[in-house]
Amino acid sequence: MRIGVVTFPGSLDDRDAQRAVRFADAEPVALWHGDHDLQGVDAVVLPGGFSYGDYLRCGAIAARSAIMTEVIAAAEQGMPILGICNGFQMLTESHLLPGGLIRNEAGSFVCRDQLLRVESTSTTWTSGFSAGEEIIIPLKNGEGGYIADAVTIERLEGEGRVVFRYLGYNPNGSMNDIAGISNERGNVVGLMPHPEHAIEPGFGPDTADAMRSGVDGLRLFRSALESALAH
């Protein structure tokens, strides 16, 4: 399976996302923001960072880039798309996902090992988890507070489209402790925490077992791979 990772000017975790794809035994393909070309990939990851310096609004300029025209079209055809942090912001800015992300409630950037509950396993990116499973994924953002109108929140909750929820501590003031959501079809998932930083023992979050041993993030990428193989 070939998974594309888009690099925008100001992307930071693009190489990390490529590494995660590799660790999941898929083939990473570097995609460029200025191209109208998905190079025939089977799925796309929109990585974290500060695309275009986060000018205007986080993800707003990236959402209008050449590559995103293709990503939006592919998403509508059912291609698995994962937006991580800044990528999640792009997904809301391009209306593939509802709502938006605002400045953290505390006002400052936060980096921490975050406990999450997997609320939905019916998406392409979470099918390998069991429902209600608790996982640890690094989180690092300045504008990660999820916000939406009451109707949208009710719909997301009612349709089981809240995919990840913060447990124990809500690091950014997100409504309903929402850490990640999906579209109706379940092929597009956006989340603020960074699964690509929990893929390799020694470089992931601390767990109860050992320091930096957390690899829960790898299963998002494996899920996409397994979903593809199943089809």
Binding site: L12, D13, R15, D16, R19, G48, S108, F109, V110, C111, R112, P138, K140, H194, E196, H197, E200, G202, F203, R212
Partner: peptide, 14 residues
């Protein structure tokens, strides 16, 4: 202080 800094990016922090 350090929680305001990204320590994960690049994936090589041991």
């Amino acid at each position: 202080i350090t929680a305001q800094y990204d320590r994960y990016v690049m994936g090589n922090t041991a």
